[in-house]
Amino acid sequence: MAASTPLHGNELIDCAKANAKDGIEAAANLCGYSGDIETFERELHLAAQHMGIKLESFQDLVKTTEVPKPIGIEVAPDTSTEL
Score class of each variant (00 low, 15 high):
1 M>C: 12
2 A>I: 08
2 A>Q: 14
2 A>P: 04
4 S>E: 09
4 S>W: 02
4 S>F: 06
7 L>Q: 07
7 L>G: 03
11 E>W: 00
12 L>C: 13
12 L>H: 01
12 L>E: 01
14 D>Q: 15
14 D>G: 12
15 C>I: 13
16 A>S: 15
17 K>G: 02
18 A>N: 15
18 A>T: 06
19 N>F: 12
21 K>R: 13
21 K>M: 11
22 D>G: 02
22 D>H: 09
22 D>I: 02
23 G>E: 05
24 I>R: 11
24 I>W: 04
25 E>T: 13
29 N>L: 10
29 N>Y: 12
29 N>Q: 09
30 L>P: 04
30 L>Q: 14
30 L>A: 12
30 L>M: 15
31 C>F: 02
32 G>D: 09
33 Y>I: 10
35 G>M: 05
36 D>Q: 04
36 D>I: 07
37 I>T: 15
38 E>A: 11
39 T>F: 00
40 F>M: 06
40 F>D: 07
41 E>P: 06
41 E>G: 04
42 R>M: 03
45 H>N: 12
46 L>F: 01
47 A>Y: 00
48 A>F: 00
49 Q>E: 12
50 H>M: 08
51 M>L: 14
51 M>G: 00
51 M>C: 02
51 M>S: 07
53 I>D: 00
54 K>A: 12
55 L>G: 02
55 L>K: 00
56 E>L: 10
56 E>V: 03
57 S>P: 01
58 F>C: 04
59 Q>I: 05
59 Q>P: 02
59 Q>T: 11
64 T>V: 04
65 T>W: 03
65 T>Y: 04
66 E>I: 14
67 V>Y: 02
67 V>W: 00
68 P>R: 13
70 P>Q: 14
71 I>S: 09
71 I>R: 08
72 G>L: 08
72 G>R: 06
73 I>L: 08
73 I>C: 06
73 I>Q: 08
74 E>N: 05
74 E>K: 11
77 P>T: 11
79 T>W: 05
79 T>M: 04
80 S>F: 12
81 T>F: 15
81 T>R: 12
81 T>Y: 13
82 E>G: 04
83 L>A: 11
